[in-house]
């Protein structure tokens, strides 16, 4: 077990005229070494949920446990939590600010109070893991391409050696090839560093291909939670709350509705092609 939320509620804009219950009675366990995706329309509570995980926001009621310890206990170190649960914001490249790539990535670990050697090792290790070559180390981060900037921003969080990497729409605004590269990178980190990945995404195609678990949020509550293959069966329900399923899945649902006996729980292009060929044979 790594993170456990128990009866967590959160009120947005408390005391103001805008007061809104953003999360209501959330019970959720993020297990070690999971690759999970959180989906939901704008305002469904996704971003609030992930900001609770590293203590950036505080729950109104309920408890959050990190490795069994209540993070709201007086003697719990929030600084430790923030290094263990690394948060990558939307458009993280907007937060690059140092004069060189290396300095930018080293900023986090330097603030951890680590000795110089450890800071350097984690910095260079993170840059290597995200695929940024030495020739870019002393370049200004602002001179990099969109995809490279995002890698550097992820390296900056990774350099603090988190156990959980939480990303808010890491693919937004990237071209299809860059999206794929970032996803392959997360897959590699998940596999090699044994890191837990939790990401927010609007792309059901990406979620279906990479995540092993989908958590669906609506109006501050978790309404579906399970493997993509199970969750994406509920196309009608998802569509009612402003979400969809991958095109490959939707096609098979459509055929099944027309009375065709096909496997209708396909998630990817390849799976749909195989299922259709099997039917037409």
């Amino acid at each position: 077990m790594s993170v456990l939320l128990k009866n967590v509620s959160y009120i947005y804009g408390k005391g103001s005229s805008e007061e809104k219950l953003a999360l209501r009675d959330i019970n959720l366990e993020i297990r070690q070494n999971e690759f999970a995706a959180v989906v939901g329309h704008t305002g469904s509570g996704k971003s609030t949920l992930i900001q609770l995980l590293n203590g950036l926001e505080k729950a109104e009621s309920g408890e959050i446990f990190f490795h069994g310890k209540n993070i709201y206990d007086k003697d719990f170190s929030m600084k430790m939590l923030r290094s263990k649960v690394g948060l990558v914001f939307q458009y993280p490249e907007h937060q690059l600010f140092e004069s060189t790539v290396v300095k930018d990535v080293a900023f986090g670990p330097s603030n951890m109070g680590w000795e110089q050697l450890k800071v350097e090792l984690s910095t260079f290790g993170a840059l290597k893991d995200v695929g940024i070559g030495e020739e870019l180390f002393d370049v200004s981060p602002l001179a990099l391409s969109g995809g490279q900037k995002r890698r550097v921003a992820i390296a900056g969080v990774l350099a603090m050696e988190p156990e959980i990497l939480v990303l808010d729409e890491p693919m937004a605004g990237l071209d299809p090839a860059s999206r794929k590269e970032i996803f392959e990178l997360l897959k590699k980190l998940h596999r090699e560093r044994k890191i837990t990945v939790l990401l927010v995404s609007h792309s059901m195609e990406d979620v279906a291909e990479y995540a092993s678990r989908v958590i669906v949020m609506n109006q501050g509550q978790i309404v579906l939670d399970g493997e993509p293959r199970k969750v994406f069966r509920y196309e009608k329900e998802l569509s009612k709350i402003g979400l969809g399923v991958p095109q490959a899945t939707s096609l098979m649902h459509f055929l099944a509705e027309q009375g065709v006996a096909v496997e209708d729980d396909c998630l990817t292009v390849q799976e749909s092609i195989s299922a259709i060929l099997k039917w037409l044979k």
Binding site: G40, H41, T42, Q90, A172, G173, H202, M204, G242, L243, G244
Partner: peptide
């Protein structure tokens, strides 16, 4: 449309 959810 880059920053919008599917319905938006």
């Amino acid at each position: 449309t880059a920053m919008l959810d599917p319905a938006g």
